[in-house]
């Protein structure tokens, strides 16, 4: 039997995943925790073969941060990130920290179990591309990487000057990126741009 650790802060989603695991014949659900901050501890005190983990978990703990720690300390333990957030940077970051597979929570039980099977068979399962999100008059893929970086700081509530300092750009460049995004999206001001980006799930900070 393959031991599965579930890290999910939403109790309903967590129990649903537990049901999927408990009703399958191959997998054994050994523990569930609400916060990714506890994931490494659970791996240390239990024999965990695979971790099914959300990105945004209780106490603001990031599943991606926890995945990085787990992969460093327990390279043989498989980590599957499952999220409902279409945040554009999650997939890239998951690749970087060595997450084995990345999938979306909205999938049916069979699909999630299939991702588990393929991951345990040594396959890396990732969506082909990040989901396309509509942002005003444009789509998320039409924003450049640099614009997305500026947008991320904007959503965090940083001033233009603070963004410039943080991203090592001039104030004029920051204003230029914001203006460019406003033109693409058709939003009236920076606040609307930030609010809509956050609402759409395109940008989720501190994860």
């Amino acid at each position: 039997m393959i031991n599965v650790l579930i890290v999910e802060d939403d109790p309903m989603a967590r129990q649903l995943l537990e049901i999927y695991i408990n009703t399958s014949e191959k997998y054994n659900h050994i523990q569930s925790v609400e916060s990714a901050a506890l994931a490494e501890f659970c791996c240390r005190t239990n024999k965990v073969d695979v971790v099914l983990m959300d990105v945004c978990t209780a106490m603001n703990a990031s599943g991606l941060d926890a995945a990085e720690k787990i992969k460093k300390s327990f390279p043989d333990t498989k980590v599957i990130i499952i999220t409902s957030q279409p945040e554009c940077s999650f997939i890239d970051r998951a690749h970087k920290v060595g997450v084995d597979s990345f999938w979306y929570k909205s999938s049916a039980a069979e699909e999630i179990l299939s991702v588990l099977d393929r991951t345990m068979a040594g396959e890396q399962v990732y969506p082909e591309s990040a989901p396309s999100l509509k942002l005003g008059n444009t789509f998320s893929e039409n924003l450049t990487d640099r614009e997305l970086e500026v947008l991320r700081e904007l959503v965090a509530g940083e001033s233009d000057a603070a963004i410039a300092e943080k991203l090592f750009m001039s104030l004029r460049t920051v204003k230029g990126h914001i203006q460019s995004m406003r033109e693409k999206t058709g939003f009236r001001n920076r606040t609307e741009l930030a609010v809509r980006a956050r609402e759409s799930g395109l940008i989720i900070n501190n994860k």
Binding site: D9, D10, M12, A13, L16, S84, Q85, K105, S106, A108, G201
Partner: peptide, 13 residues
């Protein structure tokens, strides 16, 4: 978002 997620979970159930 969490509320929305929970609603989606219910729909999925």
């Amino acid at each position: 978002t969490r509320e929305k997620e929970r609603l989606e979970t219910k729909v999925r159930i």
